[in-house]
């Protein structure tokens, strides 16, 4: 007999990943996201004056976040909450599995799935951008315009950032699942939470202006520290399309931000889940 928490977390994560992969929802959402990313190529004539490369890239970045968030929320609720609802957790938690091992295993399985999703979508986007690049370079040099720039390594870094961003989304959903009583509640509250995280920086900056009252500014700053700011991860354009690239400090702070928020949210999840009646 082996008594290793790490091994148990690994088996639970592996099972969660396989379960998610075998569901049609993952394939369906990936095809939808890839379709949306590819539609950037078809709709590039409607680029509203933007550079064509940026137009295609924006479609891909949008597909990554939109469908990635849907996948993160639905899969987390499906794989964590439904396990409690369907009572499969009864047999698993009756084994020598601690609650934190269960939570961490579930999260790692879902996060791995999100990594696969982002990586596949990144490949689709890289292929599309690479296909268009030679023609755009030729056209720009013919017209004497500045040459377009594409950094595929930067795209890889952007994918890593999105993986961390979706990790925060999944951890937040997991936290909501730990006290949710119905599937629908978990999905809706998670979606609202993500929306809040997405707009928090705009809200904080609006309410922390010098003309606001002191308590409003204090409250806004406090809320800004508690609610994760998902817009910090929006470094796609500088990373992929700008020769100057994104500031290293911005990339590192976004990665560090994700690396800090995920364990904090997981810790709260374990705390809430530890006394939940199964």
């Amino acid at each position: 007999m082996t008594d290793s928490s790490l091994l148990r977390v690994r088996w639970i994560a592996g099972n969660t990943f396989v379960e998610a992969l075998r569901q049609r929802f993952f394939a369906f959402l990936f095809l939808l996201a890839a379709g949306l990313a590819a539609s950037g190529m078809l709709l590039r004539t409607f680029n509203f004056g933007q550079s064509e490369l940026k137009f295609i890239a924006d479609f891909g970045f949008g597909a990554m976040f939109l469908f990635g968030s849907i996948l993160a929320i639905v899969m987390t609720v499906q794989l964590f909450f439904s396990e409690l609802d369907n009572r499969t957790a009864l047999t698993l938690l009756a084994k020598p599995v601690r609650r934190w091992e269960f939570v961490l295993g579930k999260f790692l399985g879902i996060w791995t799935l999100l990594g696969v999703f982002i990586a596949l979508l990144g490949v689709v986007l890289a292929v599309m951008l690479s296909i268009r690049m030679p023609e755009l370079v030729e056209s720009a040099s013919r017209n004497g315009e500045p040459l377009p720039f594409l950094n595929l390594k930067g795209l890889g870094m952007f994918c890593l950032l999105q993986w961390f961003r979706l990790g925060v989304v999944a951890a937040l959903s997991l936290m909501i699942c730990s006290f949710a009583q119905t599937f629908l509640y978990a999905v809706i509250v998670s979606a609202m939470g993500i929306l809040l995280c997405q707009v928090q920086s705009a809200g904080v900056s609006a309410f922390s202006k010098p003309d606001q009252e002191t308590w409003v500014r204090t409250l806004a700053n406090g809320v800004g520290k508690v609610i994760p700011d998902l817009q910090l991860f929006d470094l796609g354009v500088p990373l992929v399309l700008s020769p100057a690239g994104a500031p290293q400090s911005a990339v590192l702070s976004a990665l560090g931000y994700g690396a800090l928020y995920m364990p904090v949210l997981l810790f709260i999840t374990v705390f809430l889940f530890s006394d939940r009646e199964i």
Binding site: V18, E19, R22, N86, R87, L90, T91
Partner: peptide, 12 residues
Amino acid sequence: FLPEAPYFYRHL
């Protein structure tokens, strides 16, 4: 432990 009316991972 075998619970009453058990429900297991259908994908396995």
